[in-house]
Structures are given as structure tokens and as C-alpha cells.
Design a protein around this nucleic acid. Structure first.
Lengths: 192, 192
DNA sequence: TTAATAAAAGTGAACGTTCATTCATTTTGT
DNA sequence: ACAAAATGAATGAACGTTCACTTTTATTAA
């Protein structure tokens, strides 16, 4: 009955092309025609894989977010001591942002603009829950300040996005030593 | 010889309209036609006041950045003790972001996208120099960690942008108490 | 004080382009 | 043989910008 499979390759090529174009030219200059050309398909083909441009962006955002949080919790287990666990997750996140620069940069752009609708953003946030749980545990143990998780995130994690931005603009170098300094600042800001 | 003055009012109306449209719809959906309509002028009139759309955005960015840094250093003098001075500047910035939400939100968007060219961004950064000088003074006095000013900024100031973002999305409330907590976290992260 | 003037502000409509999306048709894999 | 993937060309809307023209106003000449 001739059931054909959609090509995983083409879908990935389209997502990758979108990532590159949005990163280099911004959302307002990443037209479907260019995305198609970069992925070596016809513009019309995009609409076989995605409903429309917004859907393409949303799906890309969610896939990256999931891969990001997967790496964030690599080797993490809930029964590690709070500080050790936090250090592990923190360095996981830092390494992601250092090694997958393009992906991290795309995610940062999404989180700071109207590119992504609130729904997809909320969906992306859910995957960070284990970190919030860890902080709650730390608070109960009297190790971590008893403040909103948003405040904890603002100081413990978000500065990495800023530093990554500066590194991308070649104003700052995130080497081993400065990573250590950054982790110390993160920890100092949230520990009791 | 009939030298007519350009209307300050119209220019301001155009800047204000741009601010509102970019904030609500994003850069990619703030067309000149809408900007003109919102400012009650003809689209063609925009080109009497600004070279093109990019110039309009750049000028808006720079004006807001200057007003922002003016408020940041209100009542500040160089001979204040380091911690007091930092506290003053920190609260000035926090208040700006709390009271001039739209302006702050626009600036944050600019700093995180390709909307603004690197030149205008560099120009905007210059006005923050007194804070960097203050930190250097603090480092010499052994009060503040001896790390890059970018790292200090990432932890001492930038988290406010994230918290503001969360407040705008109604996920977090920046009241007196949480401001106090945030300042404490800022200070803890950079002090020795 | 007034009327003429000139230069620049201000305009609505139009231009050329580019965009996201669709359509009629062809190609491909089963 | 057939159903779905894939396509190049077409479509209509929207965009930034320009243009030919009108209005306003500071200055000048009377």
C-alpha cells in the first residue's frame, strides 16, 4: 500500500538550517526560501514536515531545550549531597553552553524575545524541575537561602547566559579558571 | 530664508511608538506603517527624522541607554565607601527596571538579539564605566573579588534583567523583600 | 503691518521587493 | 500501481522606502 516514511535526514537538515540562519541573521531575516536552500530542499517541502514557520521554530526550540536539560542532569542522582549535585549540574550546563554554542545561543534568543509563544516556553521550563527539587532539598537542610527558585535561578544559572554572550562577542574568555570563579560566585550567591 | 524646525513632539511620538510596537510584537512585526499610524504621522514623515528603520532603532536604543545610565548613577559620588556606593547604584538600577518597565524591556531585547549593531551596543556600554571604576576601587581595597568586570556584571547586575523578565511574565513578584534578597545575593556573589 | 517668497516639513499613493504559503504536477519507494 | 513525498512556479499580502505634490512657517520686501 505504499506507505512512505518522511525522511529524518531532511527534517534534521531543516532544523539545522533554521538554527544557523536565525543565529546569524536574526529571526526577521531567516526566510523559508533560504532555510530550504540551505537544507537542499524545495520551500514547499518544509510544509510537509512543519505546519508553518512558527511551528518550525517551536519544534526546534523544544528539541533543543530537551537536549539541553538532558545534558544538564547527566550523571546526576537524587541522593547526591546538595552541594556536589549542584556543582555537577552547574558544570554540565556550563559545558553545554561552551560546547554547543550555537544551540545555546539560539535558546537564549528564544527566551528573550517574542519569537516563541508562552506555551512552548512553559513546556521547555518543565524539564528543569529536578534542579528546583534539589534546591528545595538544600533549603530544608539549611544549606541554601530560603528564597524563590526564580531568584536562585537568576543568580546560580542565568549569569552563564550573559557570560556566554560576552564570549561570543569576544569580550570575555570562559576558560577553566574563570569557570571556577563563576561557579564560586554562583554558589556564594545562593548558599547560606 | 525660512529655516523651519523639526517637531520635537513628532520625533518623540515616533520613538515612543517604536518602543511600544517592538515590545508588544517584536522587531519582526513592528512595520513602519504601524509606527507611523501610532505616532499619527505619514509613513513618509519618518524618513525626515530618521535615515531608515535601523537608524530609528539605533537612536531609540542610545537615548534609552543614556537615560538608563543617568538614573543608575543618580546621587552617586566617587568618594562614597565602596559597598554603600554599590548599594546605591544597584538600587538605582533596580528602580529603573521596576518603574520604567517598557524602556528596560526594550533595552534587554536589544542586548540579546541582532536588532542592534555592535557599534551602537559598544557606545551604550561606555556609559557604565563609573561602575567598573568603583569595582576596581573595591578590588584594590580587598573588598571585591579580583575577577573580570564582565563576571562581576554577570552576577551583580544582570540577574535583575532575568528577574524583571519573570516579573513581566507574572511568574515572580519583585517587592521590597525580594529586592532585599536580590541585593544580598548580588553582594554575596562579588564580595570577598 | 502685511503680503510675497522660498525652503523645508509633511503627505498619500505608488514602487519594487520579499515573504510565507499554496498548487498543479512529477518523482519516489513500497 | 499507487499513495505519499517532493517540487518549481505561482500567488497575494506586506514590507521598507521613494516620489510628486501640498502645506506650513520663518523670513523678506513693501
Amino acid at each position: 500500500m505504499a506507505i512512505r516514511e518522511k525522511s529524518k535526514e531532511k527534517r534534521n537538515a531543516l532544523l539545522k538550517a533554521t538554527l544557523n540562519l536565525v543565529n546569524n541573521n536574526g529571526f526577521h531575516d531567516a526566510p523559508m526560501s533560504k532555510i530550504a536552500k540551505m537544507a537542499n530542499v524545495s520551500p514547499a517541502t518544509i510544509y510537509i514536515y512543519f505546519e508553518n514557520k512558527q511551528d518550525l521554530i517551536n519544534q526546534l526550540y523544544l528539541e533543543l531545550k530537551i537536549s539541553y536539560t538532558e545534558q544538564a542532569f547527566k550523571d546526576y542522582s537524587e541522593n547526591m549531597p546538595v552541594k556536589k549535585a549542584f556543582e555537577l549540574i552547574w558544570y554540565n550546563i556550563a559545558n553545554y553552553k561552551l560546547k554547543q554554542v550555537d544551540e545555546a545561543w539560539f535558546l537564549a534568543q528564544c527566551d528573550n524575545t517574542t519569537m516563541i509563544d508562552e506555551n512552548s516556553r512553559q513546556e521547555g521550563l518543565k524539564h528543569l524541575q529536578p534542579l528546583l527539587d534539589l534546591w528545595e532539598k538544600g533549603q530544608k537542610e539549611g544549606i541554601i537561602k530560603d528564597v524563590s527558585p526564580y531568584l536562585l535561578y537568576a543568580y546560580a544559572i542565568n549569569p552563564l547566559a550573559f557570560l556566554m554572550n560576552m564570549q561570543k562577542r569576544e569580550l570575555y574568555q570562559l576558560d577553566k579558571e574563570s569557570l571556577k570563579q563563576a561557579f564560586q560566585a554562583s554558589w556564594d550567591s545562593i548558599r547560606i
